[in-house]
Design a protein around this nucleic acid. Structure first.
Length: 368
DNA sequence: CAGCCTTTGAAGCGA
DNA sequence: TCGCTTCAAAGGCTG
């Protein structure tokens, strides 16, 4: 807070305290991704084996030395757990804030990259307004899947005005009021989107989900859920007559994605490719470990992205509350959930079932 | 075919 | 304020 909060409060009301990370061991954590993946996979497999054998946490812990290290160093864990509000320290979009570092590969803020002749990053591209409005692309979440792969096709790059970075990136009077300005949806812009572009194929683009602002958002989802989505994906057409009722229903506005979710979205495909795994539960375990292994800068960019996602969400759906979606996911086994909650510990380390329970002395203060 | 699994983080709510 | 609960994504698995 002291060093970063000078620019006034965040409209999200975060405490804006930039927790200093401990530098300890950071280098160790920077493991090449491939090696990491192999180890992840091995770890995962061994822990699965161990779990099936019914052994306890030691085996699981042994399978993940990194986790063990974290557990044994509560302070590190505490510092590792980067609170969202730290990103508020970066909210000012100070051009120098991330200059040339943290946002590399960051699909949101680095959006201009694919459009740069050499693909390199312009310093200006660090700024939030780099969000690509001319595609009608959702400025935040949806960008993740498109990152470089999608943009590398180059078919849509002509839609990006060459000066967009300068125009939108340089001058930003206020944090909140200008957000909508990031996402002007040019008439016809949507139609230019290539089918490969994630949520541009979203059903809502085709009708019911279009936000009243005219800005489609992936957070809006028809009540009907998966099947409808699949239907849309296959046919790229609005639902036929019988679905009218459903259309009339109020669409579900999804929660904005948090930092980890954004990270998962971006990295999932990569992990799947590297591990040839598809099961999300396993993938997520790997991603969870990788998340912890990320440097503070790398995590910070996702926290920042998540913060902007929330901001945008707030602006698009002012009256929306996470509460609105409570109960929409039917949980069949509520008792079971409670059991696991009572038997396990949800902490900075994640969700621990009994076998993984962390001794209290290893828990960070905030958890205790 | 609905829900589970699995992860972290945000938010809501009751005490 | 604290602690618990729910949901966000995702895709194979399960009953």
């Amino acid at each position: 807070m002291p060093q970063l909060g000078s620019g006034g409060g965040d409209d999200l009301g975060a405490t804006d305290e930039m927790l200093a990370f401990k530098d300890e061991g950071e280098q160790e954590e920077k493991i090449p991704e491939n090696a990491f993946t192999e180890r992840d996979l091995a770890d995962l497999k061994s822990s699965l084996v161990n779990e099936s054998e019914g052994t306890g946490s030691p085996a699981a812990a042994a399978a993940d030395p990194e986790a063990v290290r974290r557990v044994q160093d509560p302070q590190r864990v505490y510092q590792e757990k980067l609170p969202d509000h730290m990103d508020d320290g970066m909210k000012h979009q100070d051009p120098g804030m991330y200059k040339g570092s943290a946002y590399s590969g960051y699909p949101f803020l680095m959006l201009s990259d694919p459009y740069l002749p050499n693909g390199s990053m312009s310093p200006l591209s660090n700024k939030v307004p780099v969000v690509q409005p001319s595609h009608g692309v959702h400025p935040l979440t949806p960008l993740i899947p498109y990152s470089n792969d999608h943009f590398s096709h180059g078919s849509h790059s002509p839609h990006l005005p060459a000066d967009i970075n300068q125009k939108q990136g340089v001058h930003r009077p206020s944090q909140t009021s200008d957000i909508p300005g990031f996402y002007p949806l040019p008439p016809g812009g949507v139609g230019q989107i290539t089918p490969s572009m994630g949520w541009f194929t979203h059903p809502l683009m085709l009708g019911s989900g279009m936000h009243t602002t005219g800005i489609p958002h992936p957070a809006i989802v028809p009540h009907s859920g998966k099947q409808d989505m699949e239907h849309y994906d296959r046919n790229m057409k609005p639902q036929p007559e019988p679905k009218r009722e459903k259309e009339a229903k109020k669409p579900t506005i999804k929660k904005p994605l948090n930092a980890f979710m954004l990270y998962m979205k971006e990295m999932r495909a990569k992990v799947i490719a590297e591990c040839t795994l598809k099961e999300s539960a396993a993938i997520n375990q790997i991603l969870g470990r990788r998340w912890h292994a990320l440097s503070r800068e790398e995590q910070a960019k996702y926290y920042e992205l998540a913060r902007k996602e929330r901001q945008l969400h707030m602006q698009l759906y002012p009256g929306w509350s996470a509460r609105d979606n409570y109960g929409k996911k039917k949980r069949r086994t509520r008792e079971k959930q409670q059991d696991s909650n009572s038997g396990g510990k949800r902490s900075a380390f994640g969700t621990y079932k009994e076998k993984d329970a962390v001794p209290a002395q290893f828990l960070p203060m905030e958890v205790l």
